[in-house]
Write a protein that binds this DNA or RNA. Structure first.
Lengths: 326, 326
DNA sequence: TTCCTTTGAGAGAGCGCTCTCTCCGAGACG
DNA sequence: CGTCTCGGAGAGAGCGCTCTCTCAAAGGAA
């Protein structure tokens, strides 16, 4: 009933356990004839190495933790893209993905212990916000960590990201070029680097053009975008353009604008950020800044497994996709 | 540099390794005084049990595989909901989530070996389609498996699901009650049980009312929904209602209807399925059947860890949410 | 007191694997 | 022919933990 061991394979092939181990691990120093015999035994017995035993001695676990420090918003369209990209890359090098969701503070402690306990060979850290204790804790552990997105300034951690600042600049420039005069923004939470950077890029361009701007705050969700838009219309009824730090918030803004009877883009132009699929199906189709999520995920895996984890952060360009809403 | 072992803890506390082990594992038969000494040593040394060593002897891994047999569509809004729910439930009982994406056939083989090799204590199987070899392979392994959604008829596997048939019936009945005469459907791929069941429920109601129906095929994406809608309008220009097997396809259909100048719901009523968040932000807001994804995920975990895995499948009700599109 | 039970702690045998060290035999060279 | 080298296989020591078995000490009954 029990799974066959390397011992059994060795016995069947008529070699020592050491030789069987060599074959299983692809050593070059084994005679072809003996190797074939061992491989045949492996096949016949359906042998699968016991990873617990293996990692007990090698001190590797061949698994990478994907730590989601703030659980994704209930429905996060990019979460599946990211997880898939990470999974694909890690699979290529034979690593397992261990998912760790840090939802409660009990979970924080558990994850910290788990990672520090050496149960994963590395960690990909996702979606951190200001007060999150996890990045600092993981940075302290001796396990390699790479963050998806720039971590908060107080913690130094290798990361890969898309060019949030550049993308936001492009969006703001685009609105100016379209001749919009009263431009407003819906920003993300100020303690999230992605939100800060997008707002910073936007502000760069506006101050360079000597413009002021209304800014309302959202939390990256559609609902918060809708609420922020209501606030903006209250504060600046004459606005003619809105830049939202995420497509979801832009979609919420579109919803509010529709309800308030403003035409898009005639009365108000709208630009989002992320270029999620949904942006192509809104009415009108949403202009947005495309974030190369999958490419960033790949870069993270490369960096995590590569030799120069602490090289300059990889920052991939974000491209403005112009559609009908602006 | 190396992590402290149980041996070190025992030495520091002045007890044997066995006693230290007892304390760490919460045995009742240890004097309070000794227990405290051990716990203090654990704390001082920052001891974390080595899970490889532990599972080598216990033959448990304390981790559950989440096998996604078809990778989620690039952006799958429900994927994050599901993963989160599963993660939350498993964390509660101290299990890790190991994510396995079966994208290539090489990955299939790897997953099969991994699971059969006893590296996980159980498997949650996700989103299977007809030709998928994985459900059968996993059913053959001696590892507990529970499927999210009814698996194809050819493989017998415990599962939990939402009531696709009942939900589709409710949707169809709703359209009839609204006085719609030429009702069409956009179905999912015929080899996916969810798609089949939704179509079956819809057909039940229509045949009972002695109606015929046009059916176009989609693949659960917005784009396929848009294409299917074009086809339906070509085949039945006089249709006045559409039932789509997923919200994404319904959203694609809305897009096509808008382009073709049909008013929703005046000319054509639209009903979707899943009740994703996006459905509340379409114009008009989409009527949909709510699938209790998180609740199903919880039921799956209960079943996977519980004693009666092979009891009748849990099928949770799906509720029709009426909005402006119908 | 003696014998037996009970409670709680220690000894030690593995779990299945890797990897170093040892050893053997064959070929090269003087 | 003896010595040296070297490729390739085996022996065996652990990796850190759990868990059974053993045993000592203490308490209770006869």
């Amino acid at each position: 009933m029990r799974r066959p061991t390397l011992e059994a394979v060795a016995a069947r092939a008529g070699v020592s356990r050491a030789t069987a181990s060599r074959v299983v691990n692809g050593s070059e120093t084994v005679h072809a004839q003996i190797r074939d015999a061992v491989l045949r035994a492996v096949d016949e017995l359906g042998y699968v190495p016991n990873s617990a035993a293996r990692s007990l001695v090698t001190r590797r676990t061949d698994s990478i933790g994907l730590v989601v420090s703030e659980p994704p918003a209930a429905e996060d369209p990019l979460f599946s893209v990211l997880v898939r990209a990470v999974g694909r890359e890690l699979e290529r090098v034979g690593k397992q993905v261990v998912l760790m969701l840090a939802s409660s503070s009990a979970a924080y402690a558990r994850i910290e212990r788990y990672v520090a306990g050496g149960h994963v060979d590395g960690v990909i850290l996702l979606s951190t916000h200001g007060a999150d204790p996890l990045p600092a804790a993981l940075a302290r552990s001796h396990v390699p960590v790479v963050s998806y997105g720039r971590p908060v300034a107080t913690v130094s951690l290798p990361y890969c990201d898309c060019d949030n600042v550049g993308g936001a600049r492009a969006a703001a420039r685009h609105l100016l070029e379209r001749g919009r005069w009263r431009i407003a923004a819906i920003a993300g939470p100020p303690d999230m680097p992605a939100g800060r950077d997008r707002l910073a890029g936007y502000r760069d361009v506006l101050s360079a053009a000597d413009r002021r701007s209304l800014v309302a705050m959202g939390d990256f969700t559609r609902e918060s975008g809708a609420a922020a838009m209501r606030q903006l219309l209250l504060d600046g009824p004459d606005l003619d353009a809105v830049f939202a730090a995420t497509d979801l918030m832009a979609i919420g803004a579109l919803h509010t604008l529709r309800r308030m009877g403003r035409r898009v883009p005639d009365d108000v132009a709208v630009v989002g950020f992320d270029d999620i699929e949904e942006a192509r199906y809104t009415d009108p189709a949403l202009t947005s800044v495309r974030t190369p999520v999958a490419a960033v995920a790949e870069a993270i895996v490369q960096r995590l497994l590569g030799p120069d984890r602490f090289a300059e952060p990889t920052v991939l360009p974000a491209e403005l996709i112009v559609r009908d809403s602006s």
